[in-house]
């Protein structure tokens, strides 16, 4: 099964590419701070995402985190890696 690691580039099912700029674990769940890339896989785009990793039937999914409280919790965890 695929493993999402820090600084790896993800290609999603909508063909968008994201790079993992920070990664953290909270309550036993992995969360990623993603930054969108152009299709060449190197040019940065002004789009980011905070996602939860989910593994299902040998597939890996990323699920957008919208919960404000969770975002407030996750933000400093990611920040500490970027500061």
């Amino acid at each position: 099964m695929m493993d999402i690691k820090l600084h790896t580039v993800l290609t999603l099912d909508n063909n968008q590419k994201y790079v993992v700029v920070a990664k953290t674990e909270y309550m036993g769940v992995s969360y990623d701070y993603l930054l969108q890339l152009a299709p060449n896989g190197i040019t940065l785009r002004n789009k980011a995402a905070i996602v939860k990793e989910e593994k299902e039937n040998n597939s890996v999914y990323v699920i957008q985190v919208n919960d404000e409280n969770l975002l407030k919790t996750l933000a400093p965890l990611f920040e500490s890696q970027l500061a």
Binding site: I4, L12, D13, A49, Q64, N66
Partner: peptide, 26 residues
């Protein structure tokens, strides 16, 4: 711009190492 252009749930089709140029930026 965070979570603005992201579908709520997406399958990860591929995970690759970042190119050196990208790493440098990161």
């Amino acid at each position: 711009q965070i979570n603005a252009d992201m579908v709520s749930r997406s399958q990860v089709l591929a995970v690759e190492e970042a190119q050196p140029g990208l790493l440098k930026k990161l």
